[in-house]
Amino acid sequence: MTSPATTSTSRWARGVVLPVAAVLAVMVFALNSSGYVVTVIGFAAIYAIFVTGLNFFMGYTGQASFGQNAFAALGGYGSAILSGNYYWDPLLALVVSMAFAGVVAAIVGYPTLKLRGHYLAMATFALGLITYEISIEWTGLTSGYMGISGIPPLGVGRYELGTEKQMLVALTAFLLLGVWISTRLRDSRFGRALRAIAGSEPAAQALGINVARYKLMAFVVAALYASCAGSLFAHFVGFISPEVFGGAMVIQSFTMLFLGGIGTTWGPVIGALMVLMLPEFLRGLKELQDVVYSCVLVMILIFAPKGLAGLVALIPTRRAPAAPRPAEAK
């Protein structure tokens, strides 16, 4: 949203400069750490992309989907098969897989999104289960439980990102691009329509917003992100199996979304980092690790119900003296 010049500076600082600096700092930290930390932060970046997409559908638009892992699987297997078996350029495989996932999302979403609330949740959950079963049973294509290994790393033409650290730089670039798109779309006519649907579908309808169409668009955007994350996972790890895109992924991503701050642009990134890094910090506690981890999660949800990104919003912004806001004085 275009804002008067007086307030845009602080909003810019808080909404863009600060988080981007934080992400780059984490990346630099990872690049100077051991291989294991690089792997964990790489996973965090991939999950952050996935959850940023989920946030379009669940956060901005206020709909429930328990089946986004289906689109991550499409991306992952698409990339694995196209670049592994058919020697496609990995970036091309990624883009083609995304397009395919988007088309599938549009076809599947059209009837499914007529459902609401719990029914929508169940239907999308089934979507995830179906994809999971297919990835197990269609062994000719997916090798079933065995999974697909030897997937080449990301690269363009003859240039290959051989090391994990190089990959991490690429993942960070993808992530920042993903969050940039999310921010842009959120603060636009398109994003306002989505957030209106989350607030009240009848009111959105009454203002001329085609609710069904906007829901479908949010679903497709979420699927594109999920597919991209799936592809990146395949290239980052070099191996995928049905379990990678199983039910655990859904639970993991929900935790990240709610912990980081649903409906916020940076919440998914914070949530992904938090959920994947916290166990590493708690490793020293040995058998108490899971207990403390769960306690921390519950505490955050109690004391920061809008997620960790919501806490950042509590930092007072510098208000321009020329524009007093009496409404906020209380």
């Binding site: 842009r184 006519r189 398109f190 994003g191 957030r195 009111a203 203002l207 917003i209 668009m217």
Partner: peptide, 28 residues
């Protein structure tokens, strides 16, 4: 039926939907 998570001004901005245009490309 207000959009509760939006500010007062954003609520009115949603109202402009009918008389404005632009989708994802315009937003990006």
């Amino acid at each position: 039926q207000l959009f509760k998570d939006l500010t007062v001004r954003e609520n009115v901005a949603v109202g402009c939907h009918r008389v404005t245009r632009g989708g994802i490309p315009a937003a990006l």
